[in-house]
Design a protein around this nucleic acid. Structure first.
Lengths: 303, 303
DNA sequence: ACTATACGTTCCATATATAGGACGCTAGTG
DNA sequence: CACTAGCGTCCTATATATGGAACGTATAGT
């Protein structure tokens, strides 16, 4: 029974993709290899890491514990590889990064410029869209995706980066106009400013900090796919809105917005970084991915 | 060109054993394997990590940088393995640990007892000697060795654990008796208490914090292989001594000893953990080794 | 209830890595 | 100045791992 550090790598990816088939697609290797390597790891450790059914895999308690360690190992691996790619000679090449409007305006704006300053020979092509596009056919190297709950399975490598809370905000002036805004029900008598697309009336999801979920139907005063437009509308006192916490941090500090229903969150979302594969990725692409992975959590850090 | 995390493991061991032959012996595998894996790693990264002559290997600058990352990866690996070995079921078995008198009395005393309390079914046999013994023939599983400079090459796995400074101490009362003790030369008129074996006169090595080295011959009043005896003699005002910093921390805080020549150190030493091999090591031995590796640096931490 | 589908595992011819020794080289030794 | 011991690398029969398809099974849609 021999020690094989690659087992860690395989195991981590099977866990993160929640299955052998998905992991095999993402890593572009036959699933039989993954199966055998994870089995070998389990035998060597004498622990069952994954509980297989014929339909999917579930991570056991031991597996979760082991995953914590194994993920750190793979992190170290990725950092080491990225460090070696950066060494000395300046990076060059073109990298296509895709993200949403909100992420571009409020999260990545200084990260990509800092990277561009750091690596003047790397051409960054940023594609901004709120639509889900196919990264492979569109030739995208890196995508940042915001999503609530699970990201739909795909053949992409996806790495969790940060949690995001969509909180409720309005201007201090608008708040005074309202009779009260203490409970989700009070939203019914508000004008609501919604990010995305909407009809005249929409059910706004709410989640209490203790986990309780509910909905409240309310009147939509304005909806836009552009968060900065919605934010400006809220600052101008047009209504209540739900936005990611990091979007409203500055106007809250400036006194232009106040957080309302502070015990409630519209949705808990996540930001993930997606890449088509992890093998054969050119150094400048790896470097940007690693740069984002380090900087982005700081940019959206709560408080 | 395929990615192989084992390359990291092999590279780290070649660096730490300063050669393919020594690493191969320690890991109990043919050196051809190490050679090929390191070569593959270099080719994949496109960097020369080791500079080979036909007589030995030298780590390049890139190699040193890469080693920092790779060592962390291997650390993670070892911690993950140890964590899995510890899981649930209580460990059992016998483990033989060898160390010097000083390490036993001043460093390991609560570490081994804590471990014994944590794992009541593990029998720890501690062998205490100041002589260099052959771990393999003596059946020793783990050894803690103090050494100044490099540890002599052996077929053992050796992991650096902590730095130790041998500093100069005497009692406040003895210090008053002395005309002055400002420079190494002033040691000549002191009575010196030496750890180990010595003649009536000995050259005491000194090293300035800036790196300058010198010697000072002085009269030996007492020498013992037991640090606690020497320390007690110093507390009783019999002379000046040089002892590891951690040995004198308590008496210094109690006002029984004062550090003299504070800009000088008698020697910079290290503590390392040695094990016969890393493959086929039973869980309880791994667990003790990992436990020591975590706890010992805290026990000897300066200040 | 039925069926098509997608899952993880197993099988086996083939490709790849390995072990152990031979090799060429160099630093220390007499 | 020749020699020996010890180093890292290269070579090749053999052992091991691999990829792709076949397999058994459980789910989700009808």
């Amino acid at each position: 029974m021999s020690i094989d550090l690659n087992d860690y790598f395989y195991f981590v990816h099977v866990v993160e993709k929640k299955g052998y088939t998905a992991a095999a697609k993402a890593l572009d290797m036959p699933k039989s290899r993954l199966s055998r390597h994870v089995a070998q790891l389990e035998e060597r450790l004498g622990v069952r890491l994954l509980q297989r059914s014929s339909r999917n895999v579930a991570v056991t308690e031991e597996g979760k514990s082991f995953y914590q360690h194994a993920r750190k190992l793979v992190d170290q691996f990725e950092m080491a590889e990225a460090a070696m790619d950066n060494r000395g000679g300046s990076l060059s090449g073109k990298v296509v990064i895709s993200c949403s409007l909100g992420v571009a305006q409020f999260v990545l704006f200084d990260i990509v410029t800092d990277f561009a300053r750091l690596h003047p020979n790397v051409l960054i092509e940023q594609r901004v869209t709120n639509s889900m596009i196919d990264l492979i056919t569109e030739g995208v190297d890196i995508a940042i995706r915001g999503h609530s709950g699970e990201l739909p399975d795909s053949s992409l490598i996806q790495r969790f980066i940060a949690n995001v809370e969509w909180q409720f905000y309005c201007s201090p002036g608008y708040l005074e106009q309202l009779e009260q805004l203490q409970t989700p029900y009070d939203l019914a008598s508000c004008r609501f400013l919604k990010v995305g697309r909407a009809g005249a009336k929409e059910a706004i999801p709410l989640q209490h900090k203790d986990g309780l979920r509910t909905h409240q139907t309310t009147h939509i005063a304005l909806c836009s796919e552009d968060m900065s437009t919605i934010r400006q509308a809220a600052i101008d006192g047009l209504g209540v809105t739900a936005l990611p916490d990091y979007v409203c941090r500055a106007p809250v500090e400036a006194g232009q917005l106040v957080r309302v229903l502070p015990d409630w969150v519209s949705q808990y979302a996540s930001l993930s970084l997606l890449m088509p594969s992890r093998v054969g990725v050119p150094p400048h692409t790896k470097a940007l991915a690693e740069f984002i992975r380090e900087r982005l959590p700081l940019a959206v850090r709560p408080q």
